[in-house]
Computed example of a mutant assay.
Amino acid sequence: MGNMESQDAGLWARSLAGDGAAFGALFDRHRDRVFRHAYRLCGNRHTSEDILATAFLELWKKRRKVVLVEHSILPWLLVTTTNVARNTNRASTRYRRMLDSLPRQDEAQIDSGEATYFQSVLDQDVVDALKTLGSIDLHLISLVVFEEYSVNAAAELLNLSPAAAKSRMHRARSKIKDVLQPKPAPPSQFVMEGNGS
C-alpha cells in the first residue's frame, strides 16, 4: 500500500502542476472505492454515480486546500464524498416530502426513480444506521471501519486529537449497534379463561 500512496502523492503533485493525465490516473485509481463509499451512504446506484462525479469535481475545485493523509488523496475524497452524500440525502428528503404533499391523480403514474438498487451490496438497515451519525462521526466510521485507516490518520484529517477520535469512534460504534439491534417483539397478550368453576 505504501507504494500506491507514494504514487498518489506524485500524481497529485503533477495534477497541481496542470497534468490532466495525472488527475485522470487518480480518478481511475480511486473511483471504485469512492463509488462504493457513496453507495454505502445512499443505497442508490445512479445517485452514487452523481456523488462520485461531484466528489472529484470538488477535488479539482479545492485542489489548493486538499490535505493528503499518509501520502494518499483517498481520505480527503472519502470525507468529501460523505459530505456530498449527506447533502444529497437531505435534498432528496426535501424533494420526496414535496412530492408526497402533491395531490395524487393516479398512483401508477408516479415513479420515484429509486427502483434500481444493488441489493447484494449493502443492507438498507446499515444505510439508515449510518444516517443517524453526525458528520464527524460518520467521517470517522467511514475512514477507520470501512476504509481501514488508522484512528490517528483519520484524526489528523478531521482536526481531532487521537483521544477525541477514539472516544467518538466508541460512541459512534455503540450508536450504530443500538440502531441495528432487532427491536423486541411487543409482549403478547394472553387472555386466561377460567375453567368455569
Rank of each mutant, 00 (worst) to 15 (best):
S6C: 10
D50A: 10
Y95P: 01
F190E: 08
R45V: 14
S135Q: 14
E70R: 07
S48P: 08
D32N: 11
A115V: 06
I176A: 02
K177Y: 05
L140V: 05
L158N: 00
L59V: 07
G194P: 09
E70F: 08
R63E: 05
A108M: 03
G18Y: 09
L74F: 08
V67R: 15
L160S: 03
H139L: 04
N44Q: 15
G10N: 15
L77C: 06
D106C: 03
S174W: 03
G24W: 02
D50C: 04
E193Q: 14
R173L: 09
A9Q: 14
P186T: 10
F27L: 10
R40N: 03
Q105A: 05
Q181V: 06
Q119C: 12
Y149L: 13
R14T: 01
Q7N: 13
R14W: 08
R29V: 01
R36W: 09
R86Y: 00
T54F: 02
S135Y: 09
E147G: 02
S120G: 15
T47G: 09
R29W: 08
A155W: 05
S142D: 08
L122A: 10
A55C: 07
S48T: 00
F118V: 13
R90H: 15
A38W: 11
T116H: 14
A25Q: 13
E58A: 12
S6H: 13
V66W: 00
R40K: 11
D123M: 03
N195A: 13
Y39R: 06
G20W: 03
V145A: 04
Q189A: 12
L11I: 02
E70H: 10
M98V: 12
N87P: 04
F56Y: 03
A172M: 08
R173C: 03
R31D: 07
Q181G: 01
G2C: 12
M1I: 12
A172C: 04
L11S: 01
S72K: 07
D178R: 11
N3C: 14
E49P: 01
E147A: 14
R97A: 06
L133N: 04
V84A: 06
I51K: 05
Y117A: 14
S135H: 12
N152E: 11
S48G: 08
K175T: 08
T54L: 06
S167Y: 00
R104L: 14
K131C: 07
L16M: 09
A172V: 05
K62I: 02
A172P: 01
R40P: 02
A17I: 05
L99A: 09
L143S: 05
I110K: 07
F190N: 11
Y117L: 15
Y39P: 00
V191M: 10
G43V: 01
A108F: 07
S101G: 12
L78R: 03
T81N: 08
K183G: 05
S112M: 13
T47Y: 05
N44T: 04
R45K: 13
A164P: 00
Y95F: 15
A85S: 14
H30W: 10
D137F: 00
I73L: 12
F27V: 12
Y39D: 04
Q105T: 12
N83R: 15
A85K: 02
V79A: 10
T80K: 07
T93A: 15
V34A: 08
P186M: 12
A91D: 15
N83E: 14
V191H: 11
A9E: 11
T132K: 10
M4W: 09
P182G: 09
W60G: 04
R97I: 07
G10W: 09
K175L: 13
V127T: 08
Y95W: 15
A9I: 06
G18R: 05
